[in-house]
Amino acid sequence: MMRRQDVFHYGAMGSLVLLIAWCVAWEMWIAPLHPGGSWMVLKAVPLIFPLAGVIKRDLYTLQWTSMMILLYFTEGVVRGWSDRTHPWLGWGEAGIVLVYFVCAILYVRPYKQAARKAAKELLDKINQVH
């Protein structure tokens, strides 16, 4: 049986890979700004850098990418709202980002709670000594 943390990890990994593929397909083939592809495809490059950390379950990577990825959410909403021919691409991007964000936050949460508890216990021990 799969643990809940595994589900969140696979959700974060899968949505990040899907978002990279989505951005490339969008800007190269489905609806590029210019025929034959667009330099906008480069927006997928920053998503490639944290991929190894997300795969390795690095908490720090999952934390900072959960904030960085909100830029893609913003782009998805703006383009979903304003694009007259392919708004579903923008809304799809925003949806994929939401999946990543929720999975990353829920994956990191128990570790953050454990760290807070350990820090509190350490402070309590220090206070007992004095």
Rank of each mutant, 00 (worst) to 15 (best):
T74N: 03
P50N: 10
W29E: 01
P32D: 03
K56A: 12
M67V: 13
A12G: 10
V77W: 09
I96W: 07
S15Q: 02
L89S: 09
E75G: 14
Y60I: 14
T74K: 08
I105D: 00
G14V: 14
V99P: 01
R84Y: 11
A52E: 06
L70V: 15
M68G: 13
A52Q: 03
M68W: 12
G14F: 04
I20Q: 04
S15P: 04
L70P: 07
P87C: 12
G76I: 14
L19G: 01
I20A: 01
K43M: 08
A21W: 00
V78N: 04
T61E: 06
S15R: 02
M13D: 00
P32K: 01
L89A: 09
A104T: 10
V102S: 07
P110L: 13
V54Y: 01
L18I: 05
V99M: 05
G11E: 06
P32A: 00
P32G: 03
G80S: 08
V54M: 04
V41T: 14
M68F: 15
Y60K: 06
A25T: 03
A52M: 10
G90A: 13
Y107S: 02
E93Q: 13
P110S: 14
W88S: 04
G37Y: 09
V99R: 01
L51G: 07
L71R: 08
V24Q: 00
A25C: 03
L98K: 08
G14D: 05
K43Y: 03
A21L: 03
V78S: 06
V99S: 01
V108F: 11
H34G: 05
T61K: 07
V108N: 04
F73P: 12
W39E: 08
T61D: 07
P50T: 15
R79D: 02
P87G: 11
A104N: 04
T74F: 14
A12Q: 02
L70C: 15
G14P: 02
S15L: 02
S82K: 14
D58V: 14
L42P: 03
A104I: 06
L33C: 06
R84W: 10
A21T: 04
V102R: 07
V54K: 02
M67F: 13
L59G: 10
P50Q: 10
I55F: 11
